[in-house]
C-alpha cells in the first residue's frame, strides 16, 4: 500500500506467481524454437528469436486482457488480478526483444535510420495487402513501454489516478494495433490457416469476455421504500440480501455506495452493516465487489484495505474512503444517510 515504496513488493505468493510466469515463458520459448527449428531448418537464430518472442508476447497480452473480465465473471480469478502488473512488464520485455531484433534484422543494416526505414521502406499505407505492418507493432511497443515504465505505484501517485488510468487504458488501442500488426504481417505471409484461426479465436475470446462482463450488473438502483425511513435516510435493502462479509452495491445520484455486511462469528453479536463509497483510492477499484478480510474491506483489484467503520486504511497506511451513517431497524431493513458522508 502507500506508506513506502519498494522496487518490487514481493511476498510469498507473488514470488511463486513470478516463478511460474518465468518458467512458463521460458518453456514456451524453448518449445516454439524447438518445433520451428525442426520444421524450418534454414531459419536463422535471429528469426527463431523474433518469432518465438513475438508469439509469447501476444499470448501473454491475451492472458492479461482476459484477467479483468474473468474476475468480474468469477471471483476465483482475482489472485491473477493482484499480479497482473508483472505479466504486463514481462509482456513488454518480450515485445521489446521481438521489436529490437526485427529492427536490427530488417532495418538496421542499410544506410537509413532504422526508425525512418520502418516507416518509409514500404509505404503502401493505403493497401490492406501490402500495408507496412511493422509500423503498427512499433506504435504498440511505444504504448507498452509507457505502461511498463509507469507500472510502479510511484507513478500512480505522481500522475494521479485519472491520468495514470487513462495512460494505461491505451492498452486497448495497443491491442488493436497488435492484432492488425499480426494480421497484416505474418498471417498474410503464411500459407497455414491455423495461425489465422488461432488469432481469430483469441480475438473472439477477448472481445466476448469483455462483452459478457460488461453486461453483468455491477450495481443496483435504490430499491423502493419499504416501511418508513428515518428522516434523511434512504432504504437500500434487507440485511439478509447481503452475504456475510460481502457487499451490495447501489447507485445513488450517479455515485456507487457499497453496503457491507460484516460477520461476527463467535462473538454472540449480530452482523454489522456498514456503508462506504465503492471506489478504492488506489486505482478506483470497485470496493463493492471486494470482501471482508481480517475485519477490513479489501479491494478486489490490488488488496487495498479499509476499516468498514471509519473508512481508514489500517496503520501505518493513510488512505481513507467516505463512510455513510447506517440505520438498521428491527426487521433488518437497512437505511443509509447519503448526505452525511464522512471523509
Amino acid at each position: 500500500m502507500s506508506v513506502r515504496y519498494k522496487a518490487v513488493g514481493w511476498n510469498r505468493q507473488k514470488k511463486l506467481y513470478d516463478r511460474v510466469l518465468a518458467n512458463g515463458v521460458v518453456d514456451n520459448l524453448q518449445l516454439f524454437i524447438g518445433i520451428t527449428a525442426v520444421l524450418h531448418p534454414t531459419a536463422t537464430a535471429e528469426t527463431l528469436l523474433i518469432r518465438s518472442t513475438g508469439t509469447a508476447a501476444i499470448i501473454l497480452l491475451h492472458v492479461i486482457l482476459a484477467i479483468g473480465p474473468l474476475c468480474r465473471i468469477a471471483a476465483r480469478y482475482l489472485p491473477l488480478l493482484y499480479n497482473r502488473r508483472h505479466l504486463g512488464v514481462m509482456m513488454f520485455l518480450l515485445s521489446l526483444i521481438h521489436g529490437a531484433l526485427s529492427t536490427i534484422q530488417f532495418h538496421a543494416l542499410g544506410d537509413a535510420n532504422p526508425i525512418v526505414s520502418i516507416f518509409f521502406a514500404h509505404t503502401d499505407y493505403d493497401s490492406l495487402i501490402d500495408f507496412p505492418f511493422q509500423t503498427l507493432g512499433f506504435l504498440a511497443l511505444i504504448i507498452f513501454f509507457l505502461m511498463a515504465a509507469t507500472s510502479h505505484d510511484f507513478w500512480l501517485a505522481t500522475l494521479t489516478p485519472p491520468i495514470w488510468k487513462g495512460l494505461h487504458m491505451l492498452v486497448y488501442f495497443a491491442y488493436g494495433l497488435v492484432i492488425m500488426h499480426v494480421a497484416l504481417g505474418v498471417l498474410q505471409d503464411t500459407r497455414n490457416p491455423g495461425f489465422a484461426i488461432a488469432v481469430g479465436i483469441g480475438l473472439i475470446v477477448i472481445l466476448g469476455l469483455h462483452l459478457i462482463a460488461s453486461r453483468l450488473p455491477s450495481a443496483s438502483p435504490l430499491p423502493e421504500a419499504n416501511g418508513s425511513a428515518p428522516a434523511g435516510y434512504e432504504y437500500v435493502g434487507q440485511g439478509s440480501e447481503i452475504p456475510v462479509d460481502r457487499a451490495k452495491t447501489i447507485v445513488v445520484g450517479g455515485e456507487r455506495v457499497a453496503v457491507y455486511r460484516v460477520g461476527n462469528p463467535g462473538a454472540g453479536e449480530a452482523d454489522s452493516i456498514h456503508a462506504v463509497e465503492s471506489v478504492c483510492r488506489h486505482q478506483n477499484g470497485p470496493l463493492g465487489e471486494g470482501r471482508i478480510v481480517d475485519g477490513c474491506i479489501t479491494c478486489p483489484w490490488h488488496g487495498f484495505q479499509y476499516d468498514p467503520t471509519t473508512g481508514k486504511s489500517p496503520p501505518p497506511f493513510s488512505e481513507q474512503i467516505r463512510t455513510f451513517p447506517v440505520h438498521l431497524d428491527a426487521k433488518q431493513r437497512i437505511y443509509i444517510q447519503l448526505s452525511e458522508a464522512a471523509s
Binding site: G68, P161, M169, G176, M180, S214, V279, C280, N284
Partner: peptide, 22 residues
C-alpha cells in the same frame, strides 16, 4: 474518485472496428 466508464467505451470501439479489419 470515480468509476471509470472509459473501459466500456474502449471495448465497444474495438468490438466495432477490429473484427471487420481483421
Amino acid at each position: 474518485p470515480h468509476i471509470d466508464r472509459r473501459h466500456r467505451v474502449s471495448w465497444i470501439l474495438l468490438l466495432i472496428a477490429l473484427p471487420p479489419l481483421f
